[in-house]
Write a protein that binds this DNA or RNA. Structure first.
Lengths: 332, 332
DNA sequence: GTGAAAGCGCTAACAC
DNA sequence: GTGTTAGCGCTTTCAC
């Protein structure tokens, strides 16, 4: 690999001059700038960011902590983050943690050693300790699609309370009164909020709260399926189920089918996230959409603003979810 | 951030000694090693890999060039690669290129500037020029799930010819004789091979080749759907369709449904890749499975072997696909 | 406008 | 066993 010395020698200037044309700093005559650029192009020179990182304290890379890149929702989120990051000159290091604390810590250490300029966190709940650590390191941190109450950290998320409300009130509006909800883990704020929104909608519709209709399940299809089977085989089965994410909701659809129930005629189902999966199943899933594109864009802007100090204060940006009605919901 | 000097001072030794305990090189007495380790732990010191990279010429990061991380097949592949890379101490930088040559070049330059230790390529076809460039840079490169014939590069892939053959002969075995195939792009080797396997199976079954039954489509659900609709509304519609990936196959299922045809009673459908999607739709999709876990593991072993020179020669590892029969195929 | 030189945090050769 | 020191490829004062 050619170094800045090669370019300097070849161009007959000093390395300082080359550095200045690379970074567009200092004052350089048009003539030498052109000339140096020509040489760089001819040699196909790529300045080493590892060397520049040593003095500039900038690696132009961001860590992305997510539960699992193979999970469609997070993959879509990652893609939108990647695009915006790339746009602004940053690369993305993916870190799938399975919400496992040990893995999370290992990854955070890797990112520290590699001097990532910032970390975007999309993983689960109870890592407040880790968050505080990160902030102690002065490592810019931003949280996406998750809420960290009581922590001063840049955040972009959807109004989960509203989302849960939209889902449930769509159902009550269709005349359903016996509505169950399957959450992934009430320790996760977003999950809790969605359930709270659900309760609010029921309350507004004058439906008394029934705790038997609030179930918790591991957040994958199988979990949703098993949980839904229980709910649907009870003595007083719900006529509608709200799955707190698309995976769970799809599990519900499969459970219904296996029990010989038709969707939506016998059971209505609503999901959350509006991933590709929602459009792929049959009937297509009614789901609450998160504006993934915008979320990715905003979070990158927040964290890069934080990184180069161009942003005065931390903020929490709450975007509004939208209900996308498809084929899994109908009137009772 | 604490530096090696801080540790040295605090421990009352030289930085060379600290470096030696970090890297487990040289000879250090048990006593001082212990002591230095204690200090490092107490200070929560993380050695800077950007500094060490400057001398060691190793960043311990790998670039992953894929079409789109939001595509389930590639997301699953990325996850398996990430896990193995992490295991061996490497991080993964994701680069979604949409198979766009400009984006690919941009990303490759980024990876060069960042001194990635190697690049794993899972993107499309006609980038032979880029490949040769990379090899000229002496940047370790490995190709996964793609074939680069005539190029000496480490490769892990599935036998696509066999895969296509398995899919089609499953269909002929069920008595189908009018079998269509939808490929994503015949310029992509893997696609071409799958179609070749399909033809081989038909030939073995004594079915004459009909070029009207070989269609090409953009590789997403909509593409598969539109193409399938054409095929299925022709004067002599196929009784079975082989979609060269799950997305395409799901498009076929949707097309059939919209045309009022039942799957598998009226049309049988086979996919390829066996992604989560296959298990999510109804009926679940019969699909040819790629051993994604193993592929990820092997490719990382190949490229890291290449990186530290512990591997004598390049190799191409061909794994065997497996047909997973589910609900979208039945006898005529 | 341009260049000399110090230094970023580490590794590795070599001296002791 | 441990320490000194010369780089790695770049940025950034500060002279000129």
């Amino acid at each position: 690999m050619a170094t800045i010395y090669d370019i300097a020698r070849e161009a007959g200037v000093s390395i300082a001059t080359v550095s200045k044309v690379i970074n567009q700093t200092g004052r350089i005559s048009d003539k030498t700038r052109k000339h140096v650029q020509d040489v760089m192009k001819r040699i196909d020179y790529q300045p080493s960011v590892v060397a520049s990182a040593l003095t500039k304290k900038r690696t132009y890379s961001l860590g992305l902590l997510i539960p699992d890149i193979a999970n469609p929702f997070f993959a879509e989120l990652a893609r939108s983050i990647e695009d915006q990051a790339h746009e602004l000159g940053y690369s993305l290091v993916i870190c799938s943690t399975d919400n496992d604390l040990t893995r999370e810590e290992r990854y955070v250490n890797v990112l520290r050693q590699k001097s990532a300029d910032g970390i975007i966190i999309a993983t689960g709940a109870r890592n407040d300790a880790m968050m505080k650590q990160l902030m102690k390191y002065k490592l810019p941190v931003a949280v996406i699609a998750r809420e960290m109450p009581l922590l001063a950290v840049d955040t972009v998320l959807v109004d989960d309370y509203l989302g849960g409300y939209l889902a449930a009130s769509h159902l009550t509006g269709l005349g359903h009164r016996n509505i169950a909800v399957i959450a992934e883990d009430l320790a996760v704020m977003s999950s809790k909020e969605r359930v709270r929104g659900y309760r609010k909608a029921l309350e507004e519709a004058g439906i008394p709260y029934d705790e038997n209709l609030v179930a918790v399940s591991p957040f994958h299809v199988e979990g949703g399926k098993a949980t839904a089977k229980e709910l649907l085989s009870s003595s007083n089965p719900p006529s509608a189920i709200f799955g707190c994410n698309d995976l769970l909701a799809i599990g519900v659809v499969q459970a219904a089918r296996e029990l010989g129930l038709r969707v939506p005629e016998d059971v209505s189902v609503v999901g959350f996230d509006n991933t590709v999966l929602a459009t792929i199943i049959d009937p297509p899933l009614t789901s609450v959409a998160q504006p993934v594109q915008q979320m990715g864009k905003e979070i990158v802007q927040l964290i890069t603003g934080e990184i180069d100090g161009s942003k005065p204060s931390k903020q929490r940006l709450v975007l509004l979810p939208e209900l996308v009605v498809r084929g899994t919901t109908s009137a009772v």
